Simulated scan of single mutants.
Amino acid sequence: MKLLRPVALALLLSVGLPAQANSGSGDPRYTIQNPPAFAMIGDLLIARPLLLAATVIGAGAFVVSLPFTALGGGVGDAGKALVVDPAKATFVRCLGCVGEGFERQE
């Protein structure tokens, strides 16, 4: 009986704490978006193909502009703007969500 009460209390606290931490933390990494079905369908049929096309076109533009950006020293900025940002919007975001699904803070 003496062992049952602390074990039950520890189990109850361990089950209840993650839900409290995620719901009231205010940290944008822990906010869960719950988009409606029409937003998911629009994202799947319209936005993702356009973003994929933007990624491919941006990669081509990056390769074409690479000699000029290398001379100017802006290869990293050009790569991020033309390839990485559209690719993140295409592949990292959850379906129908507005923001990115993964953000690493440095």
Results as ranks from 00 to 15, higher is better:
residue 1 M to H: 10
residue 2 K to F: 15
residue 2 K to R: 13
residue 3 L to H: 09
residue 6 P to W: 08
residue 6 P to L: 13
residue 8 A to V: 13
residue 10 A to N: 00
residue 10 A to Q: 03
residue 11 L to G: 04
residue 16 G to Y: 09
residue 17 L to C: 09
residue 19 A to H: 11
residue 21 A to Y: 13
residue 23 S to T: 10
residue 24 G to Y: 14
residue 24 G to L: 14
residue 26 G to H: 05
residue 28 P to Q: 03
residue 29 R to V: 07
residue 30 Y to D: 09
residue 30 Y to F: 15
residue 31 T to M: 14
residue 32 I to M: 11
residue 35 P to V: 00
residue 36 P to F: 01
residue 37 A to M: 09
residue 37 A to W: 08
residue 39 A to D: 07
residue 40 M to C: 11
residue 43 D to S: 06
residue 44 L to K: 12
residue 45 L to Q: 08
residue 46 I to G: 04
residue 46 I to V: 15
residue 49 P to T: 05
residue 49 P to M: 04
residue 50 L to K: 15
residue 50 L to Q: 15
residue 50 L to A: 13
residue 51 L to Q: 10
residue 52 L to E: 14
residue 54 A to H: 06
residue 55 T to D: 11
residue 55 T to S: 11
residue 55 T to Q: 10
residue 55 T to E: 13
residue 57 I to F: 09
residue 57 I to V: 12
residue 58 G to Q: 02
residue 61 A to E: 12
residue 63 V to T: 05
residue 64 V to Y: 11
residue 66 L to I: 02
residue 67 P to W: 01
residue 67 P to R: 01
residue 68 F to K: 07
residue 70 A to L: 05
residue 71 L to Q: 13
residue 73 G to P: 03
residue 73 G to E: 02
residue 74 G to T: 08
residue 75 V to D: 00
residue 79 G to S: 00
residue 79 G to R: 01
residue 81 A to Y: 10
residue 84 V to N: 01
residue 84 V to A: 02
residue 85 D to L: 13
residue 86 P to M: 04
residue 86 P to H: 02
residue 87 A to E: 01
residue 87 A to P: 03
residue 88 K to F: 05
residue 89 A to Y: 04
residue 89 A to E: 07
residue 91 F to V: 08
residue 91 F to K: 03
residue 92 V to S: 04
residue 93 R to D: 05
residue 95 L to Q: 03
residue 96 G to E: 00
residue 96 G to K: 00
residue 96 G to S: 00
residue 97 C to F: 03
residue 97 C to V: 03
residue 97 C to Q: 06
residue 97 C to H: 04
residue 97 C to G: 08
residue 98 V to T: 11
residue 102 F to N: 14
residue 102 F to D: 14
residue 104 R to D: 11
residue 104 R to W: 12
residue 104 R to M: 10
